[in-house]
Amino acid sequence: MADQQMQIGEVAERTGLSLRTIRHYEEVGLLAPSARSKGGFRLYTETDIMRLMTIRRMKPLNFSLEEARELLDILDALQKTGTTGEDRQQLRGRLDTYRQVTDARCEALRARLEMAEHFAASLHQKPPTRD
């Protein structure tokens, strides 16, 4: 079953990304439309949306576009049927590195959020009175 093709506006709506951001990702080589309509409109599939969501989810963790490109390349290579066992093992090792970095960055964000929540709670406390 072929993926349904969507125009960029629907993709933007589904991913929460702006048209400009999607076009930028295309310009820097992170994404390519799966097809073009007869009128020249970009057409995307669910696979393209999953790719965009991977990029989007990396942003709050401060991954660079280059790191996003590398991770996407790793994921693409792991999906290829011609990837040899040795290459696959090396790719999995690189993917594990991304997992470890992601886990560490998530933990750092949790710690920052906890500090922010404590600060917000302190603002809701009644200030001490001076007599």
Results as ranks from 00 to 15, higher is better:
His118Phe: 12
Thr102Ser: 15
Phe41Lys: 11
Arg99Trp: 09
Leu19Ala: 05
Ala77Val: 03
Ala35Tyr: 06
Leu61Tyr: 08
Leu123Met: 14
Pro127His: 08
Gly29Pro: 02
Leu19Ile: 09
Glu117Pro: 09
Met6Gly: 03
Arg110His: 09
Asp73Gly: 15
Glu66Leu: 11
Gly16Glu: 10
Pro128Val: 15
Arg112His: 09
Tyr98Lys: 06
Glu67Ile: 03
Arg57Phe: 05
Leu61Phe: 13
Phe41Glu: 07
His118Tyr: 14
Lys80Asn: 06
Thr47Cys: 10
Thr97Tyr: 02
Arg42Lys: 14
Thr102Val: 11
Gln100Cys: 06
Ile22Asn: 02
Thr129Ser: 11
Leu43Phe: 12
Glu10Ile: 05
Cys106Met: 15
Leu72Lys: 02
Ile49Trp: 05
Leu43Val: 12
Asn62His: 14
Ala120Lys: 09
Asp73Thr: 14
Pro60Lys: 09
Pro128Glu: 11
Leu19Thr: 05
Leu52Asn: 00
Leu123Asn: 07
Ser37Gly: 13
Gln100Gly: 09
Ser34Met: 14
Arg14Lys: 15
Ser34Asp: 13
Ser18Cys: 04
Glu46Thr: 15
Lys38Thr: 09
Asp131Tyr: 11
Thr21Cys: 04
Glu46Leu: 13
Ala120Gly: 06
Leu31Thr: 01
Leu71Phe: 11
Tyr44Glu: 01
Arg69Ile: 07
Thr54Arg: 03
Glu13Leu: 09
Gln90Pro: 06
Leu31Glu: 00
Glu67Ala: 10
Arg36Lys: 13
Glu86Gln: 10
Leu91Phe: 04
Met58Lys: 04
Thr21Asp: 01
Met1Gln: 06
Asp103Tyr: 08
Ala108Glu: 14
Gln5Gly: 02
Val28Asn: 10
Thr15Asn: 00
Thr54Asn: 03
Gly9Met: 10
Pro128Cys: 11
Thr54Gln: 04
Gly39Pro: 01
Ile74Gly: 05
Thr81Ile: 08
Ala32Glu: 10
Glu66Arg: 14
Arg56Tyr: 03
Phe41Ser: 08
Ile22Ala: 04
Leu17Val: 04
Leu109Ile: 08
Leu75Cys: 07
Ala77Phe: 04
Leu123Ile: 10
Glu13Phe: 07
Ser122Val: 08
His124Asp: 02
Ser18Met: 03
Asp87Pro: 01
Thr15Gly: 01
Ile55Lys: 00
Gln4Pro: 01
Ile49Gln: 12
Val11Asn: 00
Val11Lys: 02
Arg57Pro: 00
Thr84Pro: 00
Arg51Met: 07
Arg56Asp: 06
Glu70Pro: 04
Asp48Leu: 09
Thr45Gln: 13
Gly82Pro: 02
Ala2Leu: 07
Thr81Phe: 07
Arg69Asn: 09
Asp73Arg: 15
Ser64Tyr: 12
Asn62Phe: 11
Leu71Ser: 02
Asp76Gly: 04
Asn62Val: 08
Glu70Phe: 07
Leu75Tyr: 01
Gln7Asn: 08
Glu117Lys: 15
Met50Arg: 15
Ala68Leu: 03
